[in-house]
Design a protein around this nucleic acid. Structure first.
Length: 862
RNA sequence: GCCGCCGUAGCUCAGUGGUAGAGCGCAUCCUUGGUAAGGCUGAGGUCGGCAGUUCAAUCCUGCCCGGCGGCACCA
């Protein structure tokens, strides 16, 4: 047999899979009663090239898909493209290439690269979100949501780049400047489209409890993001002579109404209506609000979070004691977007209020005293106390603990009809307007007479015009000569199209449902979606833990309520995989002098690793291990690896060296090790055709090999089931070593065939090409991809003899070989009669013998 | 600041209330008819630190130290 040659073997098997169409999805009618399994990796943005992170993500999904297929599931494993977004417009501006041409050519390139990975994908279901066939249907359900009242327009504050004439996301604002133009970013009020995700806030939290196959971490992050809190909303009356015209009272929100008697001021946000009212009449207040509008001026201010405030001159009356007056301040730490944009400050029991009061000399009144401390001497001047305790200085609340105090204060406030218990969320409605070209047009027509009107269904999709230019900044849709001009569907008068496009997170909020039937006329084929959804295993980066996954959960619910879909919770199982990282190398005197790994030679000198630049011989500094990035030049391109070692060695390596949820460090040594394993596997299949049928020369050896085989099947199966690919691979290493270490004459051909047949099938999800070649070498006629998963015999997979350590006073002093399940009383007898043990018990009295069945014996003596 | 995760061999990481493991690296030797290699053998660990629970703690509990991630004035 020839040496293993991936360059010849791998393309041959990929062609064989294609020819037989083995990865074509079967609908329920073809499934023959098999249970369905939907495995999906987060679809990629078509940036142009597959990188190692993509490769690891898609290989993991492929392992799951192939494993489930072998285990008898009817599998859906599709692929598509998250194809709208800014980089296409940037390419247009920088290189004059049209976003559409750029995107589709990137897709062609990346599809070809993905196919090289040997993924078991049904490519017939592929689509891109920038296909009019896709985004047109998105427009359709957008209007369904509008009809249900889940879509609305409102004015909101955005980051505006005055040079590029565009809205920037928060992460595109760096040190207060636009990331592209470098211009100082302004806060502008724009009328934007919003989706009412907050209507579903409670359900989105409740649903998290049912997601038992999601990482706890992600569920926790979503819960914190939604940020539900319970408290009290109530209204302060203004003090006499302090009441502004047209404003009756000032509503605040608090989670700690128990501390109301510790209040010493009231604070409002700079953009609170009351602040705007006062600013209109008072230039000093106007100047202060303007200052806060620009946010923290320096890094230091952001870091220290220094409190700033200005007394407005107004006073309000304490709701529980009209004789107490509280000053109203405008403060920089109050956010208009949360609660009511106003709060009462209790410096004794809140860090921020304490900072503020200390700075401006406001009173600090303690009202909660920790248990076991004397209230008479309890002092919060230096530091607030935020824990539980007994209320004091608080009239009718005195003596209550915090929880009862909160309840009592809410009751009293409701009784005097000045407030009510309230639930408040950190989550805000989802602003989906983007002033950009390369996105899904919002299907709305603005008519001066009739207001905003939905585009009639027969006019969908509203397609993007292709004749646009990107030389001038701003939204090309806005300045297109004809595109926006249309007629009002209601009054037939002249009207204008909406020129905002949708946030690309909308595109990715329903693609998993479209995959159920990507050719359906309606947005979602409910019968197909009902069969395939929920996604049984979703796999992607943890960076999408909040936004994408929360939006998709919201849209699924909204679409279900609007009648377009039937599954409220789209992802039953979620796995967040780690990144591929690599060491960095740079020139000693240049903090930015990064050198790519291909130009680096590593050696160990006197036990220390040193790096040298191959091209010049210069010594290099070994830097941190970081996510592969072009800027740090620590990128290893998948195609280089494929070329040198083949796909299978690469697939093996990205899974073998680290648990899937953690980062994996790419190393030259690691991929070498994987390559050696590929060859070692092949070497055990090599001598097969000379083997013939032989009786075992040593029946014990044959039995031992069978035990090893069945233990390996059990361990590897459990590893794949539990998403522990690295430990499944470790078991495969051991299994191959055991086969290689066994003597073919001793074991005979039957046990050996059993071992190799199992091995070929066990490695198939990870190294599918090699597995096919091994399977063929066994003389099998079909392909391993169609072979059922091997089963193990529980009797053979269990140990028939256990080594039972014996401890004397906690120290290991001997060992027994026993059959599993031996009764503790019998074990005790054997242990005490053991010669070794007797020696250690010499001169001691046995006080106690602890026998843990099948585990250990401990003799306590003294 | 708050919340979460992690700390085990030189490196990357398994693991378990009861004998500390794998791969890579390193050292020694063998092979030179699997050779842009293969194989044998071996060294190497206070399981981050301190205390507690237990017959027994790397594992459970508490505190501390170090690294990483999320949120960040959320009233």
């Amino acid at each position: 047999m020839a040496r293993y040659n991936p360059k010849e073997v791998e393309p041959r098997w990929r062609a064989a899979w294609d020819d037989k169409g083995v990865f074509r999805t079967r609908g329920p009618e073809e499934a023959g009663g098999k249970p369905k399994y939907y495995v999906l990796e987060m679809f990629p943005y078509p940036s142009g090239n597959i990188h190692m992170g993509h490769a690891r993500n898609y290989v993991m999904g492929d392992v799951v898909a192939r494993f489930k297929r072998a285990r008898g599931f009817n599998v859906l494993h599709p692929m598509g493209w998250d194809a709208f977004g800014m980089p296409a417009e940037n390419a247009a501006m920088e290189r004059g290439v049209h976003p559409k041409a750029w995107t589709y050519s990137n897709i062609d390139n990346m599809r070809a690269q993905l196919k090289l990975l040997g993924l078991s994908i049904d490519w017939s279901r592929e689509f891109a979100t920038c296909d009019p066939a896709y985004y047109g249907r998105q427009q359709r359900w957008f209007l369904d949501l509008w009809e249900r009242g889940l879509v609305y327009r409102k004015e909101s504050v955005v980051n505006w780049d005055p040079v590029d004439h565009t809205v920037l996301a928060n992460e595109q604002v760096i040190d207060g400047r636009g990331w592209r133009s470098g211009a100082v970013v302004e806060k502008r009020k724009l009328t934007q489209w919003f989706l009412r995700i907050t209507d579903y806030a409670d359900e989105l939290i409740e649903g998290l409890k049912t997601l038992d196959r999601w990482p706890d971490k992600v569920r926790l992050m979503q819960e914190n993001w939604i940020g539900k809190s319970r408290g009290l909303k109530f209204r302060f009356d203004f003090a006499e002579g302090s009441k502004p015209d047209g404003i009756d009272n000032l509503e605040v929100y608090t989670t700690r109404p128990d501390t109301l008697f510790g209040a010493s001021f009231v604070a409002i946000a700079w953009d609170h209506p009351l602040a705007e009212r006062i600013a209109a009449a008072d230039p000093a207040v106007a100047a202060f609000c303007e200052e806060l509008r620009h946010g923290a001026a320096t890094e230091a201010e952001i870091e220290t979070g220094e409190k700033k405030g200005l007394f407005t001159g107004l006073e309000v009356v304490h709701p529980f004691d009209p004789s107490i007056k509280l000053p109203v301040w405008i403060a920089n730490f109050v956010l208009m977007q949360y609660g009511t944009g106003a709060l009462f400050g209790c410096p004794g029991h809140d860090q921020r209020d304490h900072d503020f009061a200390s700075k401006y000399g406001l009173p600090i009144i303690p009202v909660v005293c920790p248990d076991g401390v004397d209230p008479a001497t309890f002092n919060v001047d230096a530091e607030p106390f935020v824990g539980d305790g007994k209320l004091f200085n608080s009239r009718f609340l005195d003596g209550l603990d915090v929880d009862s105090g909160i309840a009592a204060a809410i009751d009293r406030m409701e009784a005097q009809d000045q407030g009510e218990g309230a639930t408040v969320y950190r989550l805000r409605d989802w602003g989906v307007s983007r002033q950009r070209y390369w996105g899904c047009p919002i299907p709305v027509i603005h008519c001066e007479a009739c207001g905003p009107q939905p585009v009639p269904p027969e006019q969908l999709p509203v397609e993007l015009p292709e004749d646009v230019e990107f030389k001038t900044p701003g939204n090309p849709l806005d300045r297109h000569p004809t595109w926006r001009h249309t007629t009002c569907p209601k009054c037939k008068g002249a009207a204008q199209r909406e020129t905002d496009t949708l946030d690309t997170f909308v595109d990715s909020s329903w693609y998993f449902a479209r995959f159920a039937n990507p050719h359906a006329a309606e947005p979602i084929d409910k019968v197909a979606a009902d069969y395939w959804l929920a996604v049984d295993q979703y796999i992607g980066g943890v960076e999408h833990a909040v936004l994408h996954l929360l939006y998709a959960r919201f849209i699924s619910r909204a679409l279900t309520d609007a009648g377009d879909m039937t599954v409220r919770e789209p992802f039953a199982g979620l796995f967040t995989q780690g990144m591929v990282v690599h060491e960095t190398y740079r020139l000693p005197d240049d903090p930015k002098g990064w050198i790519e790994p291909t130009d680096v030679e590593l050696k160990t000198v006197d036990g220390k690793r040193v790096a040298r630049r191959i091209s010049t011989g210069e010594p290099l500094v070994i830097g941190d291990i970081e996510k592969m990035s072009k800027s740090k030049k620590n990128v290893v391109a998948p195609e280089e690896i494929l070329d040198a070692y083949g796909v299978d060695a690469g697939r093996l390596f990205v899974l073998s060296d680290s648990p899937p949820e953690r980062d994996v460090q790419w190393t030259a040594g690691g991929i070498e090790g994987s390559w050696r394993f590929v060859n070692r596997v092949w070497s055990v299949f090599e001598d097969l055709d000379q083997m013939g049928v032989t009786e075992p020369a040593d029946p014990d050896a044959a039995q031992a090999l069978r035990r090893t085989t069945h233990k390996a099947i059990k361990a590897v199966t459990e590893g794949f089931d539990g998403f522990r690919f690295n430990s499944a691979i470790a078991r495969l290493y051991e299994f191959v070593n055991a086969i290689k270490g066994s003597d073919p004459e001793a074991t005979g051909s039957a046990a050996r065939r059993e071992a190799l047949s199992a091995l070929a099938r066990l490695i198939a999800p990870i190294v599918p090409h090699l597995a096919e070649e091994c399977w063929a070498a066994l003389g099998e006629t079909g392909m391993v991809v169609d072979a059922p998963w091997p089963a193990f015999d529980p009797m053979l997979a269990a140990d028939d003899e256990i080594a039972l350590p014996i401890q004397v006073n906690g120290k290991r002093r001997g060992e027994l070989k026993v059959k599993p399940g031996l009764e503790p009383a019998d074990v005790e007898k054997i242990a005490l009669s053991d010669e070794q043990v007797k020696r250690h018990l010499d001169g001691l009295t046995v006080r106690k013998v602890i026998v843990v069945k099948d585990r250990i014996v401990n003799i306590v003596a003294g």
